[in-house]
């Protein structure tokens, strides 16, 4: 199993429960939408997966490794390198160009400079911003920044891709294009968890979905834990 949540609860001090007894599993190469209204706990769930948060109680296992109380930072980095993340706010580094931003995760590997340049540029062309390689984030539109953030997330071919509201700033048409992009990545073997509040688009897309409301998993097409 690629990812498993077992009775996971996350409480922010003093007593604000954002996730309550959440359990689910995701198989290797799976694809799932994480839906629910704003404030339902989607981003918090993703933050638990990429270890920006620790659960108050319960167990999380990623790639077969338990994440709870993970204090070994080197091992944490190793796990994070296998996960690609598309942040809601993109988090592009403003003084790096588009291709430098996209290539950043590749620089954490032993890839050669030639491979880094070639592969990241090819990827940016694939996501449709091949003509903006040397532009800085401030010179790009929201959609272009979004695509560069996606390119950065998948440039190392991660085993798991987490996308937090990747279509939040684009129209429905563009959102569907992006969803197809994630679907293509999934077909290449990357498991995808895509958080979105655009439930109507999820329905059009016809993929599995899990729904959160007030931190509680209300419906799921995942195999129950």
């Amino acid at each position: 199993m690629l990812l498993s949540f077992e009775n996971v609860t996350l409480t922010y001090p003093p007593e604000r429960k954002v996730l309550d007894d959440v359990s689910f599993e995701l198989a290797e190469g799976g694809f799932c939408f994480l839906t629910g209204p704003s404030g339902a706990g989607k981003s918090s769930l993703l933050r638990l997966i990429y270890q920006a948060e620790r659960p108050t109680s319960g167990q999380i296992a990623l790639f077969g490794t338990p994440l709870n109380h993970h204090n070994d930072r080197a091992a944490q980095s190793e796990l994070r390198r296998k996960v690609g993340i598309v942040f809601q706010d993109f988090r592009l580094i403003p003084h790096l160009t588009a291709w430098e931003n996209a290539a950043l995760p590749l620089r954490l590997t032993s890839a050669s400079e030639d491979y880094i340049k070639r592969h990241s540029r090819e990827l940016l062309e694939w996501v449709g911003v091949g003509d903006r390689l040397d532009a800085y984030p401030t010179e790009l539109s929201g959609g272009e920044q979004q695509r560069i953030a996606i390119a950065r997330a998948v440039v190392t071919r991660p085993r798991l891709l987490l996308a937090d509201e990747p279509t939040g700033n684009v129209d429905d048409e563009t959102a569907l294009k992006l969803f197809h992009l994630f679907d293509e990545l999934n077909k290449l073997g990357t498991a995808v968890i895509l958080a979105t509040h655009q439930g109507h688009l999820v329905d059009k897309f016809g993929k599995q979905a899990v729904r959160l409301r007030n931190g509680i998993l209300t419906s799921s097409t995942f195999k129950a834990a």
Partner: peptide
């Protein structure tokens, strides 16, 4: 702070 936090989330080691 934000860049370092991002590097961490991308899997960069503290030593790097």
């Amino acid at each position: 702070h934000e860049t370092i936090a991002l590097l961490h989330l991308l899997g960069t080691d503290d030593r790097d």
